[in-house]
Design a protein around this nucleic acid. Sequence first.
DNA 1: CGGTACGTTGTGGTC
DNA 2: GACCACAGCGTACCG
Lengths: 204, 204
Amino acid sequence: MTSYLLYFDGTVYYNGRASSTLGPGRFLLLRKNDGSVSIHGGSLIVARNYIGKNAKCQSRNNYLSFCKGGESLTIEMANIIYCQELNDWSEDLVQVVRTEQELVEKLFDNWFDYFDVDFDIIYTEYSTSLGSIDMLGIDSDGVHHVVEVKRRKCSISAVSQLKRYVDELSKNNRVQGYLAAPAIGKNVARYLEELGFRWIRIDF
Amino acid sequence: MTSYLLYFDGTVYYNGRASSTLGPGRFLLLRKNDGSVSIHGGSLIVARNYIGKNAKCQSRNNYLSFCKGGESLTIEMANIIYCQELNDWSEDLVQVVRTEQELVEKLFDNWFDYFDVDFDIIYTEYSTSLGSIDMLGIDSDGVHHVVEVKRRKCSISAVSQLKRYVDELSKNNRVQGYLAAPAIGKNVARYLEELGFRWIRIDF
DNA sequence: CGGTACGTTGTGGTC
DNA sequence: GACCACAGCGTACCG
């Protein structure tokens, strides 16, 4: 698919999951190899408007329109400042280090540094109907140690996520919950303690 | 601040909250009015790399570098395909309709259509230390009706969010929880029922 | 500032 | 295809 960018004056309308208008103003449209379209304004990192890959393009009079399923993105074009084809645009993905997954692996490989119990067995990404548990260790007494890992300071919703898993496993087991993260705020720490869970400091 | 776009061959390094490399390949850099920088690849809507507003720029040899606080984004430039200034780029924000807030208002204005109880008082965005409750109605018996609203099909984490509020208010009150959303999946519905909560179908 | 939640979340993985 | 969770989430808003 042909990729291009378009710098234009116009108004942008989106209809689909929600409905929105943007402008009139001067914006940048990106049409990518995968058929996705995004409209960027002069501030913010995220696109003002967008439509996912394989969007079909239609043009009529001064309207440029992209459609996909029940979604449509229409630009009422007042003036094209600048248009440029983008050839050989790479689709490489970013290689990131310091992800949550790394913290899980660190915890899995060095669990004896972080826990005061001996595990008979340890699972990672243990799947349940309520979501997958980052790490689950079972000790010789059968106590289930449920660990939710976060790559940055943990939030209150992380505690609720942990509680969801703990409550579920508590139906059939004795359970201890842990939140493993590099940092924790006071409010979250208080809530965590109130629920009988423990915070594990873990870092990259 | 001067805004521009740069289509280039090169490698991108990020360091800060995480660490990443991208490429070598051909990418598009956007430098916006607000001093933010984003690197786009030939697919996907979101930027491959980015750095927030007011990033400082430095250039040396064939390296272009943007810094902000403890974050840095560095491009090892092999070849500039082309470069273009972007003047008068609008910073208008999108005006969206069909937001969660609208659903909350709809529920607030027409609560008698959705609930079988009479409320003495109704709050929206009722603030607690564990987060703000979308809607809270108190009936003549003092029962607190806690409503979490979602603009699309509700997820299991929405149930946990609701449970967090319900548990908190249950310390001092009789409480009934509701999840108001346009749709709900089977698994989530089962979990919701198990917790004694109710689903309210609400739509735009 | 930190804390919390929304988002047309996007995107990937798993079942 | 539905479901679930992460993300350098970004961004807004309220304290």
